[in-house]
Amino acid sequence: MPYPTNDLTGTVVAITGASAGIGRETARLLAEAGANVVLAARRTERLTALVEEIGPDRALAVPTDVRDPEANRALVAAAVERFGRLDVLVANAGIGMYGGIEDASDDDLERMLDVNLAGTVWSVRAAVPQMRKQGGGDIVIVASVAGLRGDGNEAVYAATKHGQVGLAGALDRELRREGIRVTALCPAGVSTEFAIGAGRTEGDPALEEFLKPQDIAFQVRTVLEQPRRLRSTLWTLWPMSVDLP
């Protein structure tokens, strides 16, 4: 007898940071599984192109700056207006930055703190009332292994990811009895634009050993396809090429 999985057909998924990398691949894979996807990011042109690729009947672009609480509420409202509900939030928007504590500018660090941590809080805070109204849902926070063990060249980035992991754990304790599952995914390095230009360069051989954005998208789909009686609270994701620390 086959194991019963959760059918994603017709579910409504909002994805922040959907214009590139993990967010874009997650949108593609979930749409392939039958979900309707609401795409949030600041790069409107890329969102529009992704909507055309997936199909405007199944995808909606909502230009969003996750640092703005009102913009996150508008994202949820747009999902409900278009598709009638919101079943899933994938809080994926983030900024990566390698370097020591003195290496980046104050403005760059402030932006990373705001996007990675405050932006996650605002997007979750906007989604929870709708999920409560519906009687359940899923929140998937894309964090990082840096949130469990930061390397010496990413202290502030690690601080934001520790915050996301702590947020996810506390939310799970708060919300699970209301049918809202909360999962933190903690991947090791992923070969995306996120890494290039923030301490890595195009063609860097180290990127060959990184995870691919499709790998993280697959894990998001796996989390959502679990039967509702089951929940995953914290997953770490590593490439086969890397020894565990």
Rank of each mutant, 00 (worst) to 15 (best):
G147V: 01
W238C: 00
N153D: 14
R177Y: 02
T16A: 09
H162T: 09
S123R: 10
R46G: 07
G179M: 00
M97W: 12
R125N: 11
A91D: 02
R228M: 12
F194K: 01
W238G: 00
S241Y: 07
A91P: 04
S232P: 06
V90L: 05
P129E: 07
G84W: 01
S241I: 02
E32P: 06
N6M: 12
D108C: 04
A126H: 10
L171M: 13
P56I: 06
L50M: 02
T120I: 03
L211F: 00
Y157D: 07
A93G: 04
A126Q: 08
D106T: 15
A35Q: 03
D68G: 09
P4R: 11
M97Q: 15
V145K: 08
R43S: 05
L224W: 09
D215E: 05
L113A: 12
F83M: 05
T5D: 09
G169A: 15
P129T: 07
E225R: 11
H162R: 10
L47P: 03
A118Q: 13
T222G: 12
V90T: 05
V62S: 05
H162A: 11
E208L: 10
L211S: 02
T44Q: 11
R85A: 14
L47H: 01
D107M: 04
V66I: 05
P187L: 01
A91M: 08
S123Y: 07
V13G: 09
P227N: 05
T120Q: 05
V156P: 08
A127C: 08
A188E: 14
L211D: 02
R200K: 13
L113I: 14
Q164D: 13
V90I: 14
V128I: 15
Y157H: 09
D65Y: 09
R229E: 15
A27I: 03
T16G: 08
M240F: 13
K133I: 11
H162Q: 10
G136V: 00
L171G: 06
L47A: 00
V66H: 03
V156L: 15
V223S: 09
M240Q: 13
V12T: 12
G179N: 03
